[in-house]
């Protein structure tokens, strides 16, 4: 299968005045095939957000290149949709107009914008909330709107940086099923950062673990569980086995990153 996204030898060094520069990412390679759902795990500060931001074009790599459909990425664009951990709906726009934001940017006629927006709002279960303002929504509803907003743009790849990180456990599980359902029906390609191992295994068709800083991808496992997935599979042996392995791997990296900070200070 052809790769949608190729990350080639990406590194990113942050220069901080008066201190040693931080190497956030080092020589990272990643290939994403059409319809992959890749979940990325790793200790805090290992460069997961940095990697996603570089793919989104919001940050510039220090070396290497990112190719989307074989074309070099240089800056952000509507072909890569992003859902952030923080709530980033535009507070001055209603839910519906938030979803229309990218469509209007493309110059679609208003009627068509509304049709697309309402269809996606329906998919994420927000019918009846179209004319609410973001501040009138719960955190979970805001993230669902953000998801609808990103999907409405019909991006080649969806980048998600701990999108459910701020939500409570129950809402989070519902959101996982919702996203998985949409991914299964829409045939999307997703790059999904999380620090929740359950989430990574349940959602991912491939799970990756990044090493402690400087980050690179140290483990890449296909998840041998067929789709569509039901939440009950979280109690099956296959799930438990993979989860145990990943827990070990992530734990080793968390310890490594803690040792690194204690020796550094």
């Amino acid at each position: 299968m052809a790769n949608i996204l190729s990350v080639r030898g990406i590194s990113r060094t942050f220069e901080v005045a008066g201190r040693a520069p931080t190497v956030a990412l080092q020589a990272t390679d990643l290939d994403v095939a059409e319809n992959d759902f890749i979940t990325i795990l790793g200790p805090s500060g290992c460069g997961k957000s940095t990697l996603l931001r570089i793919v989104a074009g919001l940050d510039k790599q220090s070396s290497g290149e990112v190719l989307l459909d074989g074309k070099r990425i240089d800056g952000p664009g509507a072909d890569r949709g992003m859902v952030f951990q923080s709530y980033t709906l535009f507070p001055w726009l209603t839910v519906r107009d938030n979803v229309c934001f990218g469509l209007r940017e493309r110059g679609l006629p208003r009627q068509q914008q509304l049709e697309i927006a309402d269809a996606f709002l329906h998919k994420v279960g927000l019918r009846g909330f179209e004319s609410h303002y973001p501040k009138q929504l719960s955190g979970g509803m805001q993230q669902r709107t953000a998801l609808a907003r990103a999907l409405a743009n019909n991006p080649r790849i969806l980048l998600m940086d701990e999108p459910f990180g701020a939500l409570d456990h129950q809402t989070r599980e519902l959101m996982q099923e919702l996203l998985l359902g949409i991914w299964e029906s829409e045939k999307k390609t997703v790059l999904f950062v999380t620090h929740d191992i359950d989430e990574a295994v349940f959602m991912g068709s491939r799970v990756m673990v990044m090493s402690a800083r400087p980050g690179r991808i140290k483990l890449d496992r296909a998840v041998p569980i067929p789709h569509p997935r039901h939440y009950s599979l979280k109690t099956t042996p296959v799930f438990a086995e993979l989860k145990a392995e990943l827990t070990e791997q992530v734990r080793a990296e968390v310890i490594a990153s803690q040792n690194a900070t204690t020796t550094a200070s």
Binding site: A56, G57, A78, F84, F90, F101
Partner: peptide
């Protein structure tokens, strides 16, 4: 983060200012 969200939705520089 709103500015970045707008860019990932395909906003151009001038529409970032306007919208």
């Amino acid at each position: 983060d709103l500015v970045e969200a707008a860019y990932t939705l395909g906003a151009s520089d001038s529409s970032l200012v306007k919208r």
